[in-house]
Simulated scan of single mutants.
Amino acid sequence: MLLDSARRYLDRSCSFEQRQASLNAAPGASAPDSLWPAFAEMGWLALGLPEAVGGLGSHGDQAALAQELGRALVPEPWLANTALCAPVLNAWAPDLAAELASGQTRFALAAWEIQGRHDAFDVQTQAGLQDGHWVLTGRKTLVLGADTAHTLLVLARTRGRQRDTEGLSLFRIAADAPGVHIAALPTYDGQRTASVRLNAVTADPGALLGPLHGAWPQVEAALDTATVMQCAMSVGTMDKAFELTQAYAVTRTQFGRPLSAHQVIRHRLVDLFVSVAQARALTEAAAAALTHDAPRRMRAASLAKAFVAQAGRKLGEEAVQMHGAIGMTDETEVGHAYKALAAQANLLGDAAWHLARLEQLDPLDSTHQPETPACDATTP
């Protein structure tokens, strides 16, 4: 019922033509405000949160919705709010989590910095107490949804060295606070991100969220949640790209025969179908593991992302290639799907980064293996 209702609404309100109009708007312009209240009214912002803060559903429900959002190539900052910020707010500021779930307030997590690349714990931004108030100085990059956010959640170093995971703290800063400079940076796949500069930003003592010096474990859990939901969005985009390619192969004729009449095209379509099914299975298993202990959660999230990043990029390339030259144009939906898959392959860590992370994790005990689905011999 959730998937059916989501697909009906997105087909009506987030069509490809509406997406094109949104992308042709002025750089950094916000998406139509009418969509966000509708997302809140339908409970899409509350998925994965507990009932105490107005939430409903499980991570599995959240991942299912993410697939539909990815399928429709929705530009709204759903991932930035419900996957990146919601887990942190639920743990340390339930009142703010309730504001997020109701659509009243939008948030953005300012974690990454240029020198750290995919390592969000590589933090140079400093926060210290002066005259009883916190003062933050530094720069953040790839802040998803910051251009429409009311509140920033800023990860800053309060002690320790640059790449230490200990010594990081999280602060709640108003997006329009003095000293906060947000530069909107639309990405090539139509999403919205921003660069944030903090110039001696002053915040009251209550701006600290969670334990002083100990924010990283909860932030890392939020990053894993967002990674899994981003994988789910990629699965939806993969499914849409496959559907478009299959339809094109059936209707496009050459020399009096449809493309699908050629056996080699059929084989390639089967390979794409299998990759979508494998990506979906791994993502669903990772969503189920989000409530488990940290090593199991981290392993499941990285396993899913390492596979989906590579499979998604390859499927996008195959889809465009089978469309021919028309697949490279902005007038075709498959071209937009490919750009989305290429961008998603690098967002929140690329395949190489997640494979390296898996290598660093201790092997799981044989009695506590992750609940990954059985795959056939074609699994890479």
Rank of each mutant, 00 (worst) to 15 (best):
R12E: 14
R12M: 08
Q20N: 08
A21R: 10
A26T: 12
D33G: 12
L35R: 09
A46P: 06
A52M: 05
V53W: 06
A63R: 02
R71Q: 12
A72D: 01
A72E: 05
A83L: 04
P94V: 08
F107N: 02
I114P: 00
Q124I: 02
G132I: 07
A146L: 06
L152G: 05
R159V: 07
R161N: 13
R163W: 05
D164I: 02
E166D: 15
S169N: 01
F171C: 09
D176P: 00
P178T: 06
V180F: 00
H181D: 12
A183W: 00
A184N: 05
T187D: 14
S195A: 13
L212S: 08
G214I: 00
G214V: 01
T225V: 14
V228F: 09
S234Y: 05
M238W: 11
F242W: 15
T245L: 09
A249E: 02
V264P: 00
R266S: 11
A281F: 02
A286T: 10
A289K: 01
A289R: 02
A289V: 01
H292D: 14
A294D: 12
R297H: 01
A300S: 14
K305N: 04
K314T: 14
L315T: 12
H323C: 04
G327N: 10
T329Q: 13
T329Y: 10
D330I: 01
E331L: 13
E333D: 13
L348E: 09
G349F: 10
L364N: 00
D365E: 14
D365A: 15
T372L: 15
A377T: 13
